[in-house]
């Protein structure tokens, strides 16, 4: 099949960048989208042109490294699918495809489709954990966790940290990412002791990173390759508001 790719090319953080059009006359519908970019890159190398830089690693939809906005939608048109698992059979012969990096102030572009997502790591470092040093754990069955709670926590814990939520949000907000972690840990009895502090600290770090606010449009939920739900954002709001509003004053 034939595809025309309009790809965002940007040499470095300071380069203004532009769209460059590439013709792909003979791609195989069973290729993944990234494999199509591989093929294109091989040709660019043959022509002596700089290949397109894009992040990728596991290519099975779990590492969260890949991510690009394909035809205006993060990870492309297929729901619950990362770019590496998106196959060309999703498109029609002759389609024109626009490929851009995640765009957000908190995710500065490094080159072409590669962006810096370290803001997510800093949010986790601010509170996205259970403070349990190695060796201090009780028996795994000491605290029962109802199956339904464990399942719900797992729904949230599936987040792969790809950043599609930020990319899709009209406000460049990271609420879904933060909410997934706040919910995952806050739901489990092991994470309860730090629940509200965690929500407060992570949200404060999120705000410091320059992400936007939530306007409840639901775009993130639709873009999330792991189908993490909006209700987790409500859960985070609840934990955060209680954490800030109703917490007893701490001794400074």
């Amino acid at each position: 099949m034939r595809l025309t790719l309009h790809v965002w090319r940007q040499k470095g953080p300071k380069d203004p960048g532009r769209i460059v059009t590439y013709d792909m006359p003979d791609v195989n519908p069973d290729m993944s989208f990234l494999e199509a970019l591989d093929v294109l890159n091989e040709r660019l190398i043959q022509r002596g042109e700089d290949p397109i830089a894009f992040d990728h690693d596991c290519r099975e939809g779990i590492c969260g490294a890949c991510g690009m906005v394909i035809n205006g939608i993060p990870h492309g048109p297929r729901r619950a699918t990362t770019a590496c698992q998106l196959h060309l059979r999703t498109f029609k012969d002759g389609d024109e495809i626009w490929v851009e990096p995640w765009r957000a102030r908190a995710f500065p572009t490094i080159k072409d489709l590669v962006v810096d997502r370290s803001a997510f790591d800093r949010i986790i470092a601010a509170g996205g954990f259970v403070s349990v040093p190695t060796g201090s754990a009780p028996d795994g069955n000491a605290l029962p966790v109802p199956k339904k709670v464990a399942d719900l926590a797992m729904d949230a814990a599936q987040c792969i940290g790809c950043g599609a939520c930020v990319a899709s949000c009209p406000n460049g907000s990271a609420m879904l990412f933060v909410a997934a972690k706040v919910s995952h840990l806050g739901l489990l009895p092991q994470g309860r002791p730090e629940r509200r502090d965690r929500a407060r600290k992570m949200v404060e770090q999120m705000d410091r990173e320059g992400f936007g606010a939530c306007t409840n449009t639901g775009e993130c939920e639709a873009a999330c390759p792991k189908e993490i739900r909006l209700e987790f954002i409500a859960r985070m709001n609840r934990d955060f508001l209680r954490g800030t509003f109703a917490e007893r004053p701490e001794a400074e």
């Binding site: 309009h6 035809n71 306007t215 409840n216 775009e219």
Partner: peptide, 22 residues
């Protein structure tokens, strides 16, 4: 704040979920 969060707009943008109202 939201506008600052995305200084550079997309060249091509599609909405899936966001209602007109929102």
């Amino acid at each position: 704040r939201n506008r600052r969060a995305r200084p550079q707009p997309y060249e091509f943008r599609e909405w899936r979920e966001a209602s007109y109202a929102s």
